[in-house]
Design a protein around this nucleic acid. Structure first.
Lengths: 338, 338
DNA sequence: CCACACCTCTATAACGTTATAGAGGTGGTG
DNA sequence: CACCACCTCTATAACGTTATAGAGGTGTGG
């Protein structure tokens, strides 16, 4: 193994504790001693054994970010932000991929496997409020992105209903009347899908448009493939939609592809809008109109909040933060109208 | 803190060591004792403190995957595979984002910060052979994806020259004559860019086509934006290319977008091909022809190789593996010819 | 009946760190 | 000069685990 405190102590002719104090600046150390120790550290190339340090301190310095799909660009972009913030606060962020698997999510919550992490940032998709409440692990937990409210944990998310509302409002304002939604879920699990459907329905009602269940397409997952498949089904309807709202940008991009393949023009025949503002949507043809969540805020806030809990802010009540979003208009919904 | 071996030992009325033996199956334990211990474990919900375990064992069970861009889908897809493989082998994979920063890469190599990881899978882009040779950390290292050869470490990559050659060959076979390359680098760093340019030149020569330096576009990075910018520059030339080979799929997609914006038809006017086979290319309009590396092989092999080293296969000589690739023809290069 | 092997289990010393209590020296104050 | 406060430093006990050496009991063969 590498150089340890003991080696430094011998080299510098001081005690273990003194070296530790120099390294951590915890107790005052005389200037001459400090320099001797520092020199020994430099010469031998010491760096602390984090495992041992954290065994002693009771913390590991590791936090985990658990997401349903690593290769969903939205989460990749979010992860990049979170990693940066974690490093800035002296933590290492571990990515945990649940692959949208219920068992994986439950295992994560119970935490039996990973006593190694100090805290968890979690985006659950297959479990609900009750499972989160039944959680046994005692390390801090911050929830992101989904609709599990009323649990004793910090929660950071956009207002899904409002975001969805804004998307539909935009489609209505550009003259669309038969507006479809792609990405409803069969089970009761993916809560934000429900919230987005709710926003969709509310906005339709507000615009005086009828709600047509046939225009709400279910999908098993939320990738490009799912979007394409659902769009094909919608096109097979006798009277296809003149606009589509995708659960997220990936779904919308899948829909875009299905429309192109079927020879429909976007936005002329059908308008398309998504949520997430992934970079891909700025380069698709046509470019994709989207609702942009403030990823920077979500990522940074989640990490900061988690670290605050880890470092002892036990008293503070759980916080539910709704981060802002904005509409980004691009080619897929045209350039005319409201 | 949580439940420890000691708690279990007390509950079951046995010694610490016996519980440890039950947990690890290291020494034989009588059947009746084993059951008593197991019951205590189940009742109290024990799980080992990994920090302590690894302090004792000298290993942490953590390996790192260091990549230049987390939100490059290629790396995200690779990471997903690597995480799966690592979990299967009992390791936890930490993502490390160098952001293609030279200092970050050097820090990673010297390893002073992270005595916490047992080994590193590293895709360097800003440093070369000499820096890798000068590495001081003593944990195992596996290099992936770039052209730093002749170092005493395992190395897994596709044959960049051959891959590039295959791409150009395909363009030539479909009747293209003025073929551009996007993604050369100014400095000597990103070695695979050089290799891909070499394959490009060799293939041109083999096809009896002239090498035109003006058709080789440099970029600072390798994202969609860079591809679009470079493509615009190429279009501004008096005699623009009839085909473009992108350093990777992201660059190619940027080029695609620039062509669409400028009113050029793909593939009719200009054909486009990339490398990586990211999912995005199956949904772009037009869909993107690409050279598909065997990501599954790269990811799994890298992890397996690293774990083998960690667990003691010190003797084996460093291995350089070239993983296979294949051409995937899609709309962006047309469906006729070659 | 003793010697020996065997099987199960235990006591204990690490691993490298940090926190606590206190030891030793110096200087100032009454 | 005695006393105390202060500053620096040290000895040591944890943290939770695993590896080593060995203790205690049981059975077997001479």
């Amino acid at each position: 193994m590498g150089v340890s405190l003991k080696d430094i102590a011998e080299r510098a002719g001081v005690s273990l504790a003194t070296v530790s104090n120099v390294v951590n600046g915890y107790r005052p150390v005389g200037e001459r001693t400090r320099q001797r120790v520092q020199q020994a550290i430099d010469e031998l190339g010491y760096s602390p054994n984090l495992g041992a340090r954290h065994l002693r301190r009771g913390r590991t310095g590791l936090i985990a970010l658990a997401i349903p799909e690593l290769n969903n660009p939205y989460f990749a972009e979010l992860a990049e932000i979170a990693i940066r913030e974690a490093v800035g606060l002296g933590y290492t962020l571990v990515m945990e991929n649940t692959a949208a698997d219920r068992e994986a999510e439950l295992a994560l919550l119970d935490g039996s496997q990973r006593r190694i992490i100090d805290g968890l940032i979690f985006s659950p998709v297959r479990i609900g409020r009750d499972e989160v409440l039944a959680r046994t692990a005692d390390s801090p937990l911050v929830l992101i992105g989904e609709g599990v409210y009323d649990v004793p944990h910090d929660h950071i998310a956009i207002d899904n209903v409002a975001a969805s509302h804004a998307a539909i409002q935009h489609l209505v304002a550009t003259g669309r009347r038969r507006i479809a939604f792609i990405g409803a879920t069969p089970g009761g699990d993916r809560q934000s899908a429900h919230l987005r459907v709710r926003g969709y329905r509310e906005a339709l009602a507000a615009a005086g448009l009828p709600y047509r269940p046939r225009l709400v397409a279910r999908t098993d997952a939320f990738g490009r493939l799912d979007g394409r498949r659902a769009m094909r089904d919608l096109l097979a309807l006798g009277d296809p939609p003149d606009a589509v709202f995708g659960y997220n940008d990936l779904v919308a991009i899948g829909a875009l592809r299905a429309l192109t393949e079927a020879g429909h023009r976007v936005p002329d025949d059908v308008a398309v809008i998504g949520i997430d503002n992934i970079e891909e949507g700025r380069f698709s043809s046509p470019t994709l109109t989207t609702i942009a969540p403030d990823k920077e805020a979500i990522g940074r806030l989640a990490v900061r909040r988690l670290v605050a809990r880890i470092e002892g802010a036990e008293v503070a009540a759980p916080l539910t933060v709704q981060t802002p979003f904005r509409l980004i208009r691009r080619e897929s919904t045209g350039t005319t109208g409201g």
